[in-house]
Nucleic acid binder design. Structure first.
Lengths: 346, 346
DNA sequence: AAGGATTGTGCAAACGTTTGCGGTTGGTAA
DNA sequence: TTACCAACCGCAAACGTTTGCACAATCCTT
């Protein structure tokens, strides 16, 4: 069945295609009577504008490019959902490209976005990405860009990130307020930016509370298995910690069995808090309190900002610095996590 | 900076745009010499074809629509990854639409795919979807469709699904082979198709092994909390089961703590097996053996089939019945899951 | 009643590609 | 020489929309 076009409508009503076009978008030049007539016919014939033709004229589509390194970490599925939700409300659709943490693939994906005349680009950079040369074509095209999660500080784009430094501080504060005095931290690979930020927040908070900052209480683990060892090691110390901060889902997954194996009573002998990208803590036993990094919220905000840029074109001003948004983390306190010995701190 | 077009190339070389177009796609009418010249110039000027113009002519884009109910269940992130991987290899990009398990939204999304002239459609139906009326426009457009995961049996499209019936059987067989004789099953809501299929597989296997099929050993739970109760209930029976089959991630998450609370030794006193959509079992303690539903594989296969259809147009033949693909499940046996009392069955 | 402003519509070009057809070369065979 | 054929390339229309401009008809001025 032939798709019905503006020309068809024009022919049926005996008017010019341009008139149909204008009528459909409530152009004041067209008389209200004709306008109604056109719309009614368009409706009954199920007319749908041909996006390709529109895009060709407009040099811009109703698509938004999303370039991320992964889909499978807990964070991203929520992120996608948040983005899709907002975009759909604004009449945009999402084209999803995966970079697999490879710069080359990322550049390729950006090229694809360019080729599809996306109205905007959302990107979380790959591990290999150190600069924004491969974004040049987007800039030249005047396409607004927003970064999130994995961002490049120096890039002059809008960004939505989480505050790893203060989040780690918040975690320590929670433990301290619960009465913990010897707080250990298990961190990921120190090469990662988030590790450094969280570590800094961790030690800063300890200092603020006048608690000891000892290398004996700071561990690094690249995976759950190593985290398990760290936990055991920590508990074998002459003065085992009475509070533990686990930096990520991966860490807590490994550390928790390690603690259980050590026969430590949780949370009576040792409080635990971790940072999580999703729902994993809900599934752990014993349950632990955690700071939830809400991917949905990040996606929502980032998409909202992108839509704003598309609308107002602020990013086109020369020297536009990009607007940073830092998201607050939410503390989720599950039933069995708080130490019985009541808060002594503060 | 102005985007460079075929016309620009034509002007620079003093030839007609049509010649450029042909040269670029190795049309035999164009002399090899000119062909090379054109390509070199295109390269140095970074010429990129305008997709919108191409699509307008071709009435088809290099986009594939993906319509799914959710992103956050374990299954989908892997699925997306698998799809994206294959599609990228074939030169297609993914446009992602979420239906949130709502029929209306699903129809809307299909409309969007239509409007974007997608080359193909991949869909997992919403819970509300009972028929395929809203896919009519796709059919009329001759767009190939493949369903996966949540499919409609009667729809004449290609499909990729998992075999819930035999998977459940496989699970029971595993338990029986491990020496279990009183096998209980905890299932989800009986209204769901997969519940019925898995339940049928479960009982069929029990019969096959000559094991008792008793309502006392069959439980239904809508969420983890109910699963926990079921587990406790099962273990309080005069003859508690020595093997338990948990139908889903949700079930096992609830059931496992319930079993631990009952003081049952796992796996010595009771073996456990579950079906999982992802990586959750890796995070559970004690670890359980599970049948892994590999979303990546489903996505990969589905995308591969779609690409095949796009290429060969088989779906256009009147009466094309659709090609069903049933994926085998993979048994993942983690360290601590097998009952010590060695296999007696078979 | 004539002039000007206003309102409503049509014309045609343009966006960048693709493609059927026709036309121009040069060469070969009759 | 003429006729024909192959090899190369240009012309122009088409895909469906949008939009600046021209134009006709109607209205309100004075």
């Amino acid at each position: 069945m032939k798709r019905i076009t503006i020309k068809d409508l024009a022919q049926q009503l005996g008017v010019n295609p341009s008139t149909i076009s204008r009528a459909l978008k409530d152009h004041p030049d067209i008389s209200p009577a004709l306008r109604e007539q056109v719309k009614k016919l368009a409706d009954t014939l199920h007319y749908r504008p041909n996006y390709m033709a529109v895009n060709l004229r407009r040099r811009s589509s109703r698509l938004v490019g999303l370039v991320i390194p992964e889909t499978i970490m807990f964070f991203y599925p929520y992120l996608i959902k948040g983005i899709e939700h907002v975009l759909h409300r604004h009449g945009y659709s999402l084209i999803m490209l995966l970079s697999n943490d490879a710069l080359e693939r990322e550049a390729e994906n950006i090229q694809i976005c360019f080729d599809n005349d996306v109205a905007g680009l959302m990107i979380a950079f790959s591990r290999e990405t150190k600069n924004i040369h491969h974004l040049e074509l987007m800039e030249e095209a005047g396409t607004p860009i927003v970064m999130f999660d994995k961002v490049l500080e120096e890039a002059p784009y809008d960004s939505v990130v989480l505050d790893d430094f203060s989040d780690a501080m918040m975690a320590v504060r929670y433990l301290a307020d619960t009465g913990c005095r010897r707080i250990a931290g298990i961190f990921g690979n120190l090469n990662m930016r988030i590790t450094q930020l969280r570590l800094n927040g961790f030690t800063a908070a300890l200092k603020q509370y006048g608690l000891p900052v000892s290398p004996d209480y700071i561990f690094f683990a690249d995976d759950p298995a190593q985290a398990l060892e760290c936990a055991q090691l920590a508990m074998q110390a002459p003065q085992p910690p009475d509070g533990i901060f686990a930096m990520t889902d991966e860490i807590i997954v490994g550390a928790l069995p390690g603690l259980l194996d050590s026969g430590i009573k949780i949370p009576d002998a040792c409080s635990i808090i971790c940072m999580s990208d999703g729902i994993l803590p809900y599934f752990l036993r014993p349950q632990v309190t955690f700071l939830r990094h809400d991917g949905y919220e990040v996606g929502r905000m980032a998409a909202e900002q992108l839509c704003a840029l598309i609308r107002n074109g602020e990013h086109l001003k020369p020297g536009y610095p990009g607007k940073q948004t830092v998201l607050q983390t939410q503390l989720v306190e599950l039933a069995t996590t708080r130490k019985r010995t009541e808060a002594a701190g503060r």
